[in-house]
Amino acid sequence: MIPIAITADHIRETLDAYLEAYPDDKPSLAPVLELLDAEADLTTRKEFRGHATAGAILADPAGRVLHIRHRALERWLLPGGHLEPDDARLLDAAQRELTEETGIPASAVVPAGMLPVHIDVHPIPANDAKGEPAHRHFDFRYLFRTAAEVGELQLEEVTAAAWRDADDIADGVLRHRVKGALR
């Protein structure tokens, strides 16, 4: 059976459910809502006004969070990336990215819920090598749990992985929500 690709309706439904849980985030998500209202295709990385990405926050039984060292950006980040045509849901995209980048099999990872724990809008610099102008990512971030260890890293994108205290999550809102969920 071929999975149905993520649709604008799925993004809208996910965003609406998220805003029911976190209504104070609505002003920061205005760019996402505006593009959805304009019927922009947020599933394609060719939409340079902004497009959806999926991120994973992976916690171990001790409450540590897995960080990866991103090769191109030379920074410690949380796993995640662009949507693919085979992704049926944003949650699936986050789990796929997590598995691709860390080598941890999907069967060893359990989503903490169906709702993103955070949605972030952030700028991405131009990338002349890829022919991409500066644009925005709308990152739908999901929390997962595992007892597994890191597997084979996706060396094209990731140079290292490390379990760190949840206090090391750079984004304050995300850090607060993850720490609350892990209590």
Rank of each mutant, 00 (worst) to 15 (best):
A112W: 01
D16F: 00
P61N: 09
Q154L: 15
S28F: 04
N127M: 12
H10D: 15
V173F: 10
R164T: 09
P27T: 00
Q154A: 15
V173A: 05
T99I: 04
D120A: 14
W76V: 06
G151P: 12
Y22F: 15
T44L: 15
A40N: 07
D139N: 10
P31A: 10
E47I: 11
P116V: 13
P125I: 03
G113R: 06
I4R: 07
A166K: 09
P133L: 06
F144V: 08
H122M: 13
E149H: 01
G55I: 12
P3I: 01
A54M: 11
R183A: 15
V117W: 00
K130E: 15
L77M: 07
V178W: 03
W76H: 01
P3G: 09
D128S: 14
R75P: 03
Y18R: 05
E156R: 07
D87Y: 08
M1Q: 07
H51Q: 09
P85V: 02
E39P: 02
R136M: 11
D167Y: 05
V109T: 12
E20R: 02
E156T: 05
Q95C: 05
A88S: 14
D41K: 05
R75W: 01
L155P: 00
K26R: 15
I119W: 05
G50T: 01
E157V: 08
L91A: 06
E149S: 12
I104M: 04
H10E: 15
A59R: 03
A93H: 11
G103A: 12
R64A: 13
H67D: 13
A126L: 07
T99K: 07
V178L: 13
I2E: 13
D87R: 02
D60T: 00
D165I: 09
L73Y: 02
A166F: 04
V121G: 02
I68Q: 07
T146W: 01
D37L: 00
F138E: 02
H82C: 01
A181K: 07
L15F: 01
L29N: 04
R64H: 14
A72L: 14
L19C: 10
P111E: 12
D92K: 11
R183T: 14
R89D: 14
L174R: 01
G180Y: 01
E132G: 10
P123H: 00
R145P: 10
V32T: 06
L174Y: 02
V32R: 02
R145D: 11
R141L: 14
I11P: 10
A170F: 01
A106F: 03
A56E: 09
Q154I: 02
G180I: 03
A94L: 00
E97R: 10
A8E: 13
A21G: 06
G55E: 08
D167N: 08
E101G: 03
P105V: 08
D16E: 14
G131R: 03
D165C: 07
A62R: 12
E39L: 11
V158D: 08
V110R: 15
I169H: 00
G131K: 00
H118M: 13
W76F: 03
A40P: 02
I57T: 12
S107Y: 00
E74Y: 11
E100D: 12
V32Q: 03
V173Q: 04
A126R: 04
A108D: 13
P111Q: 04
G103T: 02
H122G: 14
A52H: 04
E34H: 06
T99H: 12
E84N: 08
A147I: 00
K179E: 10
E157L: 14
H70W: 11
K130G: 06
D87Q: 03
R136Q: 13
L36P: 02
